[in-house]
Simulated assay, not measured.
Amino acid sequence: MKAVIDKDLCTGCGLCEDTCPEVFEVKDSIATVKVSKIPEDLIESCKQAADDCPVEAITCE
């Protein structure tokens, strides 16, 4: 599984980084994904970050 951030939608609020800092990081007011593949033990927190994103900028695929 991997996470993708729509940079056109992202507001850089940092909620994803707070929820799953091992996967997400906010740089220059835009969230980025720090890993190419989400480790098994972080899949649920990554999905939670996507669900909690206020602008629905994160997808997990």
Rank of each mutant, 00 (worst) to 15 (best):
T59R: 15
I5R: 05
S36A: 14
V26I: 13
V33D: 01
I30C: 05
K37S: 13
S36T: 13
T11G: 03
A3S: 03
E17D: 08
V4L: 12
C46S: 15
P21Y: 08
T11M: 14
S45C: 13
I38D: 02
P54H: 10
E40Y: 06
L15P: 00
V23S: 00
C20L: 04
P54C: 11
E40I: 02
T59N: 08
V23P: 03
C10F: 12
T11P: 02
A50R: 00
G12A: 07
S29Q: 11
K2S: 09
A50C: 02
V23E: 01
C60W: 02
I30L: 13
E25W: 02
D28S: 14
K47C: 00
C20D: 03
C53F: 11
E56P: 00
L9A: 14
F24M: 12
L15R: 13
S29K: 15
L42A: 06
Q48E: 15
F24R: 01
V55E: 05
P21T: 11
C10L: 07
G12Q: 04
I30T: 14
E22A: 15
S29C: 04
C10D: 00
K27S: 12
A50T: 01
K27E: 14
A50E: 00
A57S: 15
K7T: 13
V35C: 09
E56R: 14
A31W: 01
V35R: 11
D52W: 12
C60R: 04
V23F: 05
I58R: 06
E25K: 15
A49N: 03
A49M: 07
K34R: 15
D41M: 08
C13R: 06
K2H: 11
C20R: 07
D8F: 03
D41V: 04
E40D: 15
A50V: 00
D41G: 02
V4A: 04
E61M: 08
C46I: 01
C53N: 04
D18P: 00
S45T: 10
A57E: 01
K47Q: 10
D18R: 15
A49Y: 04
K7M: 05
G12Y: 12
K34L: 15
V35D: 03
F24V: 06
A3M: 11
T32M: 04
K27Q: 14
